[in-house]
Computed example of a mutant assay.
Amino acid sequence: MSSTRTATADDLVAEFNLNAVQAESDLKPFRFLWASKADPNRRMTMQHMEGLNVWPLMAAADNGDAAAMAGIFRVALGDEHWEEFRKTPLPQYKLKALFKAYQKHSGQEPGESLASSDS
């Protein structure tokens, strides 16, 4: 009997090496102040937008723009800090200003989102 050889992953040619891709910027975190009753100078830190895990962002984007924005903040802050962030009431105008500043810090154009299905 003759056996046929099947190629293993190491034998296959790759058209693109995703493992070798590096960020184009230094991915510095974004820091902002958001007072709570207990801490008037509370500092919050979000991961750089370009470094966020895209899978939960894309899932949140399926539920519209507001859900996409909330998904970005949740992933950027991390679960523990997200819960802390949500304990203080947040007017919409402040959320919009925060998101614009975060986009600018991350090198994104206003209105552009990593969670957008059109990008």
Rank of each mutant, 00 (worst) to 15 (best):
T4W: 06
L98Q: 12
N17I: 00
F32H: 11
S117W: 06
A68K: 11
K37F: 05
S36H: 08
K100F: 11
Y93F: 14
L27K: 07
D62F: 01
A9E: 10
F32P: 14
P56W: 01
R5G: 13
S113W: 00
N19A: 11
T45K: 12
S25V: 09
E84Q: 13
S117C: 08
M69R: 15
T4Q: 09
A70V: 06
D79W: 00
G51I: 00
A97D: 15
A76N: 13
W82Q: 07
V75R: 15
A38Y: 06
D62M: 06
T6W: 10
G71H: 09
W82E: 07
P110T: 02
M1R: 09
R43K: 15
N17L: 01
E80W: 02
W82R: 07
A61Q: 06
R43A: 11
A68T: 11
H48I: 02
K28T: 08
N63I: 02
D11Y: 00
L90K: 09
D65I: 11
L52R: 03
A59Q: 10
M69L: 13
L77R: 04
Q108W: 06
Q103M: 03
S25K: 10
A23R: 08
M1K: 09
V21H: 00
A70W: 05
N53L: 04
T4A: 05
L33F: 07
E84R: 13
N53P: 05
H105K: 03
N41F: 03
L90D: 03
D39M: 02
P91M: 08
H105M: 04
L90F: 08
S106M: 02
G78R: 09
K87N: 15
A59M: 04
R43Y: 08
L57S: 09
D79P: 01
I72Y: 15
A66D: 14
M46I: 06
A23W: 12
Y102C: 03
P40N: 11
I72D: 15
T45D: 13
E15L: 11
F99G: 09
A115M: 04
E50F: 00
R42I: 01
G71Y: 06
K100Y: 11
L57R: 07
S119W: 01
N17E: 06
S3V: 05
D79A: 02
M44I: 08
L12A: 12
Q22T: 07
L114H: 00
P89E: 10
S3W: 03
D26V: 07
A97G: 15
L95D: 01
A66Y: 13
L27C: 13
T4F: 07
M58C: 09
A59N: 05
R5E: 14
N63C: 05
K28G: 10
S36F: 04
S117V: 07
F32R: 10
A68W: 13
E84T: 10
L52I: 07
A35C: 12
S106V: 02
A60Y: 06
Q47W: 02
A68C: 13
D62N: 08
V13M: 15
N41S: 05
N41P: 01
A59P: 00
N63E: 15
A61N: 10
T8G: 06
A66C: 09
P89V: 02
P56A: 03
T6P: 06
G51V: 00
F73I: 04
V13T: 15
A61K: 03
A115N: 07
Y102V: 01
R43C: 07
A66N: 14
